[in-house]
Amino acid sequence: MNRVCWWLIVHLCILPVRGRKSGAKYEQIWTEEGSPFTIAHEKLVHGLSAAFAEGGYGDVVVRHAMSYSDPSIQSAFKDLAGEGCSHVVVLPLYPQSAHSTTGSVHDGVERAVKKTGWKGTYDFIDNYHDNPMYIKALAASIKHAGFDPESDDQLLLSFHSIPLKDIEAGDTYELQTGASSLQIASELGIDRKRWTIGYQCRFDKGREWLSPYTTEVLARWAEAREGRVFFVCPGFAVDCLETIYDIGAELKPFYEEKAREAGNPIGDGDFVYVPCLDRSKAHAKVLFDVTIPYVKERIDG
């Protein structure tokens, strides 16, 4: 679309409407600390910094940045330059890369490099969807939430959907979500009948989006009612509006309603949301494991 037309649509139509809707939802998930999304990232910075220090790389400076909020990617590069850094390792917190997520971060980094006059170099980590520690951490979090591999518990791995047009253009996101899911199921030791993939958070209904949609899976499972449902979002590094609000206020009630309609009312413990790795020490260790090869290459030789 013409850049001027797109800018007008975004700023006059999309952002005002989505801003009001998101603001109303954020009021319901806000904490005493502030935005759970922001706080989690700040905690991760401290956790990852500590992991580097414990690993003998205490000189590594860790900062976080946002694509559409503060601190911005540009401000992060300025800050790192002020700290005397000559090389940056950029890790988008999207385990599975997509044109619309990781790709947009890459564009943002390139703009920041140009606008700040960054003189150093940088590495860009495209994804970590099959990192062994990431897989093990997710499997452990699922078990910690109460999932029993020896029971009839069912596992729904729900990812953010993307337009099919992106996949047709070469986006490998679907392949990566599938690979992550297979490895998580393998780590848990469960067969294919016990788990499935769903896609949530369609931006609009004017395009074809990657499916099956999470709501379709939940409706089918509500009718069948074969066991407890454990809902996990492997593609979300940190809990956010799409997990805290959408699952608790929309998807769980949707599942409960469909179960009642099918004559299969459920109890309080029959739908379990497994939190993201979020601010946990396990998550900091995952990010350390993903980034340390790039750090070692620059520092050790």
Rank of each mutant, 00 (worst) to 15 (best):
G19K: 11
G206C: 03
V109W: 03
I162H: 04
I197L: 13
D123R: 05
D70E: 14
I197T: 02
D171L: 11
G248R: 14
D268A: 15
Y128M: 10
D107V: 15
K143Y: 00
L210P: 05
I247C: 03
R194P: 01
T214M: 00
A249G: 01
Y68F: 05
V45E: 04
W195K: 06
T116H: 02
P293G: 01
Q74I: 15
E226H: 11
G206V: 07
F52K: 00
A169E: 08
G170F: 08
V113W: 08
Y255P: 00
D300S: 06
S180N: 04
R260G: 02
H144T: 14
A137C: 05
N127W: 13
V4E: 10
E242H: 05
D59P: 01
P265R: 10
E223Y: 02
L44Q: 11
F124I: 11
N2F: 11
P95H: 07
K78F: 07
A40P: 01
L218M: 12
D191S: 13
E223H: 06
K115A: 13
C201P: 00
E54S: 09
A185Q: 03
V62K: 04
S22G: 11
Y255C: 08
G82L: 07
I197A: 04
E208I: 13
F37P: 00
V90N: 04
A224V: 12
P265V: 15
F77H: 05
W221Q: 05
K296H: 04
V4K: 03
H144S: 15
S186Y: 01
D204R: 09
S180F: 07
I184P: 00
S69A: 15
L241V: 11
Y26G: 04
K281G: 00
E42S: 10
V229W: 00
S35F: 05
I39N: 00
P253T: 15
L93Y: 10
D246C: 04
D148F: 06
A284Y: 08
D268G: 10
Y26V: 13
A81L: 13
I197D: 01
D278A: 07
S86H: 06
Y255R: 06
G34P: 04
S75F: 04
S186E: 14
R279I: 11
L218G: 03
I266A: 12
P212G: 06
L12E: 06
A65M: 05
G34I: 09
F271E: 02
D171S: 08
G269I: 10
Y122G: 04
I73D: 00
S97E: 07
H41N: 12
R207Y: 10
S100E: 01
G19P: 06
T172R: 15
D246K: 08
G189I: 05
G235N: 01
C276A: 13
R192V: 12
A222M: 03
V4M: 09
G178H: 13
Y173I: 11
T116R: 06
E42R: 14
E250P: 03
K205D: 13
V4Y: 02
M1G: 10
D152K: 14
H160R: 13
D191L: 09
T101H: 01
G227W: 02
G301K: 11
L175N: 14
W209E: 03
D204S: 13
E216H: 04
F288D: 02
D239A: 08
F254N: 05
D59C: 06
A76V: 15
T214R: 00
N127F: 14
W195M: 06
